[in-house]
Design a binder for these strands. Sequence first.
DNA 1: CTCATATCAGAACGACTGACATTC
DNA 2: CGAATGTCAGTCATTCTGATATGA
Lengths: 137, 137
Amino acid sequence: MSFSELPTWLLSQAHLRAHGILNARLAEVDARGYEFRVLQSFAGATPLSQVAIGTLARLDRRDVTVTLTALEDAGHVVRRADPDDARRNVVELTPDGRARLAQLDAIVLAVQDEILRPLDDDARSGLLSALRLLSVG
Amino acid sequence: MSFSELPTWLLSQAHLRAHGILNARLAEVDARGYEFRVLQSFAGATPLSQVAIGTLARLDRRDVTVTLTALEDAGHVVRRADPDDARRNVVELTPDGRARLAQLDAIVLAVQDEILRPLDDDARSGLLSALRLLSVG
DNA sequence: CTCATATCAGAACGACTGACATTC
DNA sequence: CGAATGTCAGTCATTCTGATATGA
């Protein structure tokens, strides 16, 4: 059996194609995946500490720091010291950041459709539940 | 909808878990994915040029060069100039390389089972055909 | 003291781009 | 000449490991 028929290979190819499309669409508006995930963590409660962002966005603390710096430079978030705990930062979306989140949300949703286009509804739900099982083990 | 329910996310998580397991198993014998793919390209015809290896292993020329250098250092392949075309190298497995291929083949096959364990036969075949469709578009 | 927080430096893997000399 | 081959240097995104300074 050639490696190109292996589940691990097919998984990596499907992932590669999906994320190629996603990153291309995000790149068109000069965004990256980490930024989207961080912005999305503000969809619920806000403001957030960086640890909370890491939990919500499933990002390493290190990557939260780097991504927030980029978002801050772009004016999408503001960071300030937490008055209640000097170790923490309090991070909030700016109005620009909220607009950015809406923009990226729309892009990402459209990409999902584009990617799943080859599958009918049954195949889609079957795929998603299988992937959920595989993600956990 | 949170990003963690998106198809792109589930795809990346499933891929990440599968390749985490695969790379861990390969690392136990000090191997990497590229090496396996290159070795597997010798399963059919041999010897091969580096361009042929790139085609079979779906690797960039650059990565073929780097991977072959590692395999050559480990004694798994030999590279020599092609007498018929001085631009090319003729690459062959050594006996050690053939044993290495068999070893990695067994590891990779076992990993497939480990990964698919949560799915019954129907779910497996459904997943694989869906992934095939997604890989192409 | 121990723990949490944020930051920094750097690595790994996989995929890829641009350039180059050599040879066909 | 144009095209192919192998090599080299480097980028990119994603994930992760370690160390550090600071404060709770």
